[in-house]
């Protein structure tokens, strides 16, 4: 079946089998920043923003996003360079192997859109479904809080 959606601002049209998951469809389209860590809805590496909401792409059929807008980490950095949240995670040392990083960035991005000044508890609640085995999460929390500060600073300055 033919489905159409926006992928990081570009119009996509693709022919998928009706049983194809959104994760498979995206990776098949070359959107390999969306990772497959478990195909089971447990790890959060396949998180994308679906109409602004972070969802696990492995738990959706591609057909369900017909007409929707999908954002991945590949669309986060602008022409001026890394998104402040990307820089913040790197500066905080929150990226080790980096396999969970795209999902964490997108889930945290949704948090900061809805709640620009989260506390540590809110960061933990938001990222409850994003597993990381390398960092022990300490620097991920620091990185998201740092990113929130920088985004707030950028808004204040403009």
């Amino acid at each position: 079946m033919i489905i159409r959606f926006q992928l990081d601002g570009s119009s996509m049209e693709t022919d998928v089998e009706p049983g194809t998951s959104l994760l498979e469809a995206l990776r098949g389209l070359g959107a390999t920043s969306v990772k497959d860590g478990c195909s089971h809805g447990d790890c959060g590496t396949c998180a994308v923003l679906l109409d602004g909401r972070a969802v696990a792409a492995c738990l959706l059929f591609a057909a369900q996003v017909d007409g929707s807008s999908i954002e991945t980490v590949a669309g986060m950095a602008g022409e001026e360079g890394l998104h402040p949240l990307q820089s913040a995670l790197l500066d905080a040392g929150a990226v080790q192997c980096g396999f969970c990083t795209p999902g964490i960035l997108l889930t945290a991005l949704e948090l900061l859109k809805n709640n620009p000044d989260p506390d540590e508890v809110e960061v933990r609640q938001a990222l409850a479904g994003n597993l990381c085995r390398c960092t022990g999460y300490v620097k991920i929390i620091e990185g998201v809080l740092l990113g929130a500060d920088r985004l707030a600073g950028a808004e204040g300055g403009s």
Binding site: T32, S33, V73, A74, L82, L90, T101
Partner: peptide
Amino acid sequence: TNERKVDGRALATGQPVFVGDIP
């Protein structure tokens, strides 16, 4: 010093750097 990881930018921008990302 806390230098940023040399592969950090590629990882944070989702570049195709893992085995499964190879076309």
